[in-house]
Write a protein that binds this DNA or RNA. Structure first.
Lengths: 121, 121
DNA sequence: TATATCGATATACTTTTGTATAGTAGTTAC
DNA sequence: GTAACTACTATACAAAAGTATATCGATATA
């Protein structure tokens, strides 16, 4: 096989990978995105519900991060014209699928913890 | 089944999960840890090699992040008493295992990108 | 009339993270 | 002797992220 072509393919491939990882990082960066997504995994939530469920978050941060998540198509915001307005946040299909990432993060985190504790004892 | 006990178990469980995710986040936070780990996936590297391979990183950041990764048992630092000293960095078993997290991050990132593009077109 | 709720936004501030630039001690090559 | 390489460290600064606190208009409740 042509080695130059092969190298090009590898480079393109790793380029795509880097992009994909970058996208994923963008979704989870900062202190509050994962707690918000974690809370929304259990169903739709309103602003104040999220504020109450996520200890320590300020409305400013909640608002900011929700906007960010909406921009990245992770969260869908729906406004109902009740009085006063009701606003509901829910995960998009992409947001729900993110669970698979969380799952391996949990698995790796627990394995890592085990390995580190083994060495210390 | 006792509902109170069940609730306790669920809470403990989700507590462990949150801890594990927190640990995982600690490994990848900041701008440079993933590029460093990515570079080390292909084998041991010396300080200057990493500096050359990771575009834009300053020696200060490289040094800092390597120390962080070493503290978290992701990277192992070995000093050889040659003249001048040679220092080699490599991934620990935990560090190598982190590939599984990267893999789903890549997969999710690519799927997410597809879903988003579909909507725009 | 007073107070509380909802879904935020405004302003000011602190902390964390990252950048820019220079310098160190020891060694090797020209 | 001077320039370059290795593996860093020091200092100063800029930018990003997060916190604290107050406020908004509209409505519902006591």
């Amino acid at each position: 096989m042509n080695e130059v072509l092969e190298l090009t393919r590898v480079k393109e491939c790793s380029g795509e990978y880097v992009l994909a990882i970058h996208d994923t990082m963008n979704v989870i960066n900062g202190k509050w995105k994962l707690p918000i997504m974690g809370s929304l995994l259990y169903g739709k939530k309103r602003f104040k519900e999220l504020e109450r469920e996520i200890p320590g978050i300020t409305p400013r941060m909640l608002s900011k991060q929700l906007k960010d998540l909406e921009l990245n198509s992770i969260v869908k915001r729906t406004v109902y014209n009740t009085t006063p307005v009701t606003v509901e946040y829910e995960l998009t299909p992409s947001g729900k699928e993110f669970r698979s990432v969380l799952d391996v993060m949990v698995e790796w985190g627990m394995q890592h913890r085990k390995r580190v504790l083994k060495k210390i004892r």
